[in-house]
Amino acid sequence: MQLSEQRVRDVLLTTQISIQEFMDQLAAIRCLANNTRFRILTLIPHKGIAVENIASALNMTSSAVSHQLALLRRHEIVTATKRGRNIIYRMNGESVRGKLVQKILRAVR
């Protein structure tokens, strides 16, 4: 669905967010349109999961999974914590985008 520039401005005026924030939110939601990233997100439990475990479950390389997780991290959808030699990824329950994605995932499960 294409939004006209005027419609976007109208939405922004009524919601009190900046154009940049709107574009950031839109970009984060577009991350979910990628099937691989969506599948990765469905595998991340509340306690977190290591890249290697995600890669194994999806039959992908750790490098490919890390690349997708880096994008999700840039959009504040997931967080990463180093634990020994592993990086553990969790859903970001602190950010607005992370909370939105969690709601979307609950709705489709």
Results as ranks from 00 to 15, higher is better:
T61P: 09
N53V: 01
R106K: 08
E21H: 01
A33C: 12
N34A: 08
L100Y: 04
L13I: 06
Y89P: 05
A57S: 14
T79F: 00
V101W: 05
N34C: 06
D24K: 10
I87T: 15
V78M: 07
R37V: 05
G48Q: 04
F38H: 03
A70Y: 05
A57R: 08
L41Y: 04
M60I: 02
E94N: 10
V11I: 15
I49P: 09
Q68W: 00
I44W: 03
V11C: 08
V78P: 03
I40S: 04
I88K: 10
C31A: 11
S62F: 01
Q68V: 01
S18K: 06
H67T: 13
K82R: 11
A80K: 13
I88H: 09
S95R: 06
N86G: 01
A70G: 13
H75T: 03
E5G: 14
A28T: 01
E21R: 11
L26Y: 13
R106C: 01
I17F: 08
L41F: 01
G84L: 02
N35K: 15
R106T: 01
I77G: 09
I87W: 09
F38N: 07
G98D: 05
L3A: 07
G48E: 09
H67V: 10
Q6H: 12
L69R: 11
L69F: 05
R109G: 12
M1G: 10
A28L: 00
C31R: 11
H75Y: 03
I87A: 14
L100Q: 15
R37D: 01
Q2C: 11
L13G: 12
I54L: 03
S63G: 12
L12I: 09
I104W: 05
V96S: 15
A70V: 08
A107P: 05
N35C: 05
A55Y: 07
R39L: 11
V108N: 01
I17N: 14
A55N: 06
R109C: 08
L32I: 02
L105G: 05
S18I: 02
V96D: 15
Q102I: 01
N92V: 00
R85I: 04
L58V: 02
A107I: 00
I77K: 12
N92I: 01
H46W: 12
A27Y: 03
I29Q: 12
A28K: 04
I49K: 08
V101R: 06
T42E: 08
V78G: 07
V65L: 05
H67Y: 07
A33E: 12
K103L: 09
A27E: 12
E21S: 10
M1N: 06
A107Q: 09
L71S: 13
I19P: 13
